[in-house]
Amino acid sequence: MKTTAYKSISKTTLAIAVYAFALITSNMKAQDSYRIKTGVLTETTSKLTRYEVNEQNVAQFQKALTAYVRASISSKENIMAEAFYEQDKTNVLWLIERWNGKNQLENFSKKTEAKALQSLTEKLKTATKTYYVKDLEPLTKEQWRRTSKKEDNQLVIMLFVDGKKGTEQNFKDTYHVAMPQFRSEPGVVTYQLSEIEGDETQFVTYEKFRSNDAFQYHLNFPPIKPVIEYLETSIKKPPFQNGIHNLIEFAPLTRE
């Protein structure tokens, strides 16, 4: 009888274990499915690369960057990829990209377009600077792929912020409150705050507006006041306007 009872308990325990395993597996698959659909992955790799190119090589470099961006966004592992030149310094180019993980980015670096860009960078002895960033209030892939409309006069601004030590959490908390309101503005296409890896006091914002009028509306939008107050009082090297980069997109130039 003891043996029979033991077998009965064992079968029950086994059934419970199988059910629990199936439930856990189902939940994991559901989470993976959600992450794939939304494009928000815990291992997202976000990378900004600045290139300073000799004037005579700008067109050639833009061509290589355009090919890189187009190949990137055709990859299912890519979240976003865009290339710009600076409005006031056209030989300074930026590549902004996000991937589902470092391995995915490394795998893409073996592609023809990535090798061509790297080869050209080395050949022209191009000065580069790379920033890996952690996105705060991260966007989904679908949100990153939103574009301006054909009739828009797009304005893209990137702002680098170096806060005073001990004020960084205040900056993040301020943006945490304001971000949903910024993103709900009718003239905003994309708005992202990121923390630069390796220095907890350094941040960068990426702001894409449909027009200069939309940007002016943003500057007068009440929720921005606490952000401006921080930028005017709590950064290491004021004025904060020195950290602004006005960017002109040249790839992929996709529009609604």
Rank of each mutant, 00 (worst) to 15 (best):
Y85K: 12
V161A: 01
A5K: 15
V92Q: 12
G39C: 01
A20L: 13
S75H: 11
T42G: 08
F203L: 07
I73Q: 06
K141Q: 06
S75V: 11
A15Y: 11
Y34G: 14
K11D: 07
K129W: 14
V58S: 03
V92E: 13
M1L: 07
V58I: 15
E137C: 02
F61K: 04
K29S: 15
S8W: 14
A83D: 11
A17V: 14
L247K: 12
V53M: 04
V40H: 03
F182H: 03
E55T: 15
K47D: 09
V92M: 11
T49H: 10
L159M: 05
Q216P: 01
A114I: 03
H218M: 07
L193F: 03
G166I: 13
E207A: 06
N91K: 06
I228C: 00
M28S: 12
H245T: 09
I73R: 09
E55M: 09
A17K: 09
N103H: 09
S74L: 07
H218Q: 04
K7N: 13
P222Y: 07
E86P: 07
K123N: 14
Y6D: 15
Q118P: 01
Q216A: 08
F209W: 06
E43I: 04
Y191N: 04
N170P: 00
H176G: 11
N57R: 14
K150P: 00
R146W: 11
F21V: 07
T140V: 03
A127C: 03
T90L: 08
L48E: 09
A71S: 15
Y131R: 10
F221R: 04
G39V: 01
E113F: 04
P239K: 06
N107R: 12
R98P: 00
F21T: 08
S10Y: 13
D88A: 11
T174E: 02
E97A: 10
Q192T: 08
L231D: 02
N242S: 10
A15E: 05
K141V: 00
N246T: 14
A20C: 06
K47Q: 12
L155D: 01
I9Y: 15
I228N: 01
A64Q: 14
F108E: 03
A30Q: 15
G39K: 05
V92T: 15
N91T: 07
E97C: 04
E142N: 05
Y206L: 14
F203H: 08
N242E: 12
I248L: 10
E52P: 01
E232N: 10
R70K: 10
N27K: 14
L193D: 09
P252Y: 00
S46Q: 09
D199E: 05
V133P: 02
K110R: 09
F182C: 02
I79E: 06
S184E: 11
L41M: 03
A81Y: 02
Y175A: 06
L48D: 06
G166W: 12
E142K: 12
F61E: 03
E168I: 06
